[in-house]
Design a protein around this nucleic acid. Structure first.
Lengths: 211, 211
DNA sequence: GTCTATAGGTAGATAGAC
DNA sequence: GTCTATCTACCTATAGAC
């Protein structure tokens, strides 16, 4: 009988340079975003994090808590950036472009966190522990609305479009930018170029500029 | 012993006015779009279609084939409408708005088919039987690119944005329109107003009109 | 804090009666 | 073409050794 059968073998599965909880969050976010929270399995997440499934439970109490932790990490990165961008000087249209670029930067730095939140927020928002996620989401929406309303007030943004409609359009575009599948394999345009498309077309429209 | 235990009881689960295959497709599309293809279960789909899970297999060979069938129904509705809109007369910018309204109408008539395709296309595109979905997707993209290129050629659309980038932005916005959850629960804008928001902002931009 | 072993539940899919 | 009964596989989570 081989002695190795009773001891952990050398499996180069993980990246031991980061701490276990972060490796688990990274793996979970990618798995949630790619396969959905139900389609993601603790065993696959553990494999990607360089451990066995039960070890995850030393860091997170359940799969749902893991999902909520991904959301908290996402908003912890996003909210300060949105707040900072919303406080920069300039007319409303300038502040809106700053906001778009700040949000896009965060969501493309943490693409799987963003996609996990977008796809699963509605499923977890009523669970215990998710109250802060709902609050952070509303805080972000409030920032977008405020910047757009001020742009309409100072005349640099058109007034005949609702702030909610504008916010909705921008947020969805950012979501598509964060999705590696949609970004590269379907449309084949570099992501950075799409950010410029988003800003250019949103601000100035698809017609030729003649102002 | 109750005789009813051995016979089907009266369960008002279905809508017997449509045929079984269509009821299954409707239920599957909603379930796929809401919970993802892995999160959707054949039992829940069957319940919504007014039957038991094994009965689905009299109409579709597997869950994957059901997913592909949803995609085929979506493109069967979308492709002819896009082709018809792209053949209408007018300058490029007029044809582009026709295209946006045609695509939006189809995607809001079959919102769950649209969302299922967007979220799951990458997962099924390599499976046997899914070749026509990939081909139809590329056919749709080609139509958008052609209309935008002609608009750039006749000067009615700006030339400094790539057709691929414009297509990506428009498609993204239509996807958000098709999502009932995000439309109502997060932003709370009437859907019909959002279609106009989409066309207005995409064509004329977020700045005040001063041409 | 990691592992093996496993409990308890639910998934997709099939068999065969009617 | 629908059903009940059931198979096998996989899932989340726990127990307990080390």
């Amino acid at each position: 009988m081989n002695d190795d059968t009773m001891r952990p073998r050398g499996r180069p599965r993980g990246k031991p340079t980061t701490n276990p909880a972060d490796r688990i969050l990274d793996a979970a976010a990618e798995s949630f975003a790619t396969h959905g929270s139900r389609g993601a399995s603790m065993r696959v997440i553990a494999d990607a994090a360089g451990m066995r499934a039960p070890s995850i439970y030393n860091h997170f109490a359940s799969k749902d808590e893991l999902l909520i932790a991904v959301g908290k990490r996402y908003f912890a990165a996003l909210v300060p950036q949105l707040q900072a961008a919303s406080r920069m000087p300039g007319t409303g249209v300038v502040r809106l472009e700053n906001l778009i670029r700040a949000a896009t930067t965060v969501s493309m730095t943490h693409p799987f966190d963003h996609l996990t939140m977008v796809r699963e927020l509605m499923q977890v928002r009523r669970e215990p522990g998710a109250e802060s996620l709902v609050a952070d989401g509303q805080r972000c929406i409030a920032i977008w609305h405020m910047v757009i309303r001020r742009g309409q007030a100072d005349g640099s943004l058109r007034g005949d479009v609702s702030p909610a409609g504008m916010t909705w359009l921008i947020f969805t575009a950012i979501t598509a930018l964060a999705d590696p599948g949609r970004r590269a394999d379907i449309l084949g345009d570099p992501a950075t170029r799409n950010v410029d498309t988003l800003c250019t077309v949103l601000i100035d429209g698809a017609r030729p500029v003649s102002r």
